[in-house]
Nucleic acid binder design. Structure first.
Lengths: 152, 152
DNA sequence: TGTGAAAAAGTCGCGAG
DNA sequence: CTCGCGACTTTTTCACA
């Protein structure tokens, strides 16, 4: 575990809001020179704290208006079963996120489809036929708000 | 809804993998000139398809080793109740994501804490006291894999 | 759309605190 | 060990064909 100081935290906080801003503008706001700011960002990258920059896309405008969360309970839970399930679910392009969890479900999936008819197709032909699936529960996404998190 | 062509989709696909790469390098790979690539990116931004660039952080290295998903069922579901709940939950810094969903639960929350003891504190003092909460179900995150999604 | 150029940002080395 | 300064490189951004 790494120990970023307050300045690093301020940088992460700012970049978490908008990763597109320049190190110079950020440094000016923090009273730091551009190279110093840039060096800290790179240090955070090399330390593995920043693992990457990702695009935030409006999926509705791309024609994917339906997002469904699936809670999956496996029927058989040997090690082979877990690996089989993960390999099979990873091959489904509509699955955006695979979360292995502890609790009422074994896996939680985030699935994106063009519409409900498209989702039904994915559900019936790909998801329900996944190896080892016991019970499946679905929640349709109405709206979502992402927040900075504890370090923000 | 927007109609991006194949080139736009290739750009989005590439940027979804790594939003940090330059328009020039991307254009070279796609056989497009640098300004043309950049103009397409900016057009996608202005069209609202690209809503932002976000940092991908390793929360464990920042001392937040525990992520828990909460499924929340409200006891009372009037419009006022929803707004009260959303306002209260948004004020909790440990809550990273608030998803309003349809199904077995009314809301799904992604909560980050330093460890299980810290999570218990948040759960007892902040989450269980949220207005209108009926039933709460928790899943502890073991591992997570994000995939490019349908357009990737 | 491509080409070429200006402006801005990123990158590295050096000396100071 | 980190900062700031200056030079150098790359990228972004714009004007024009």
């Amino acid at each position: 575990m790494i120990e970023p100081d307050d300045t690093d935290r301020a940088i992460l906080r700012a970049l978490a809001r908008d990763a597109g801003q320049s190190a110079g503008a950020l440094g000016r706001r923090l009273g730091l020179s551009q190279p110093a700011t840039w060096r800290r960002i790179r240090r955070l990258q090399e330390a593995g704290v920043i693992t990457g920059r990702v695009l935030d896309l409006d999926k509705e405008k791309l024609g994917f208006g339906v997002t469904v969360f699936l809670g999956v309970k496996l029927a058989t839970k040997g090690r082979i079963s877990l690996e089989d399930f993960e390999r099979a679910v990873t091959a489904i392009p509509e699955v955006q996120t695979v979360e292995h969890v502890l609790g009422m479900y074994d896996y939680r999936l985030r699935v994106t489809a063009r519409d409900l008819a498209d989702f039904e197709r994915v559900l019936r032909r790909r998801l329900m036929t996944l190896p080892g699936v016991g019970n499946v529960e679905a929640n349709v996404l109405l709206s979502e708000e992402r927040r900075p998190g504890p370090l923000g």
